[in-house]
Design a protein around this nucleic acid. Sequence first.
DNA 1: TAAACTACTGTGCTTGTCAAAGTAATTTAC
DNA 2: GTAAATTACTTTGACAAGCACAGTAGTTTA
Lengths: 112, 112
Amino acid sequence: MEISKDLIRGHTDTIILNILNQGDSYGYQVSKSIRQLSDHQYELNEATLYTAFRRLEKLGDIESYWGDETQGARRKYYRITSQGQDHLATALDEWRFAKKVISNLISGRIEL
Amino acid sequence: MEISKDLIRGHTDTIILNILNQGDSYGYQVSKSIRQLSDHQYELNEATLYTAFRRLEKLGDIESYWGDETQGARRKYYRITSQGQDHLATALDEWRFAKKVISNLISGRIEL
DNA sequence: TAAACTACTGTGCTTGTCAAAGTAATTTAC
DNA sequence: GTAAATTACTTTGACAAGCACAGTAGTTTA
């Protein structure tokens, strides 16, 4: 089963915040976490991921710092801010609510 | 609670198909059905609605015909096609699946 | 030493949605 | 009787998220 891109749209930032809320991470690892969390059902395009990082940093939901790798390629790490944690909590609430509304909209009966 | 536009994105066509699956309808009435189905939590922008009608008609999921109103403004009615009914069923399956995947992505724990 | 993997960035395009404005008829309120 | 509200459909222009594609660069494995 393929998940249409538009069904994920609007969740990208929340997905990243959820992952960073469990510990600092960097692009490639976040990418792998998404694969793992979705049971290999979903992959986020690299460009989308890094675009989201920049958006979230601009918003103040995350902060970045370069790791000092003694080996391997350089990595930019991201850390969630307390504002980011607030936004994550809000987004989770919104999702619980939206889930019901959407279910009604796409399969509910119309009462005249 | 406000539902962000991006959470509905990707569902617009399915919402319309669900409504038309319960009987032919026209723009304004579909708009009201959406308000009713969402318990006044959501409203679809007119331009978005009519854009979706045109998209769905081009795809062959719906068909249109002008009503012969003896009174009131002219109305363009829409009817779901059997292809549209197939697509509606597929979209409902996809939603059931995506709901779980999304929930995992935004609130699941990462196992190392 | 070539291939595969890790890691990040930039450009340009597509698509869905929306705000705003327009057209036009009908119905309700003053 | 006319102004306001409602019904009903359309067009235009803009925006933001996401993506494909391409590029840079270091590391590990075959």
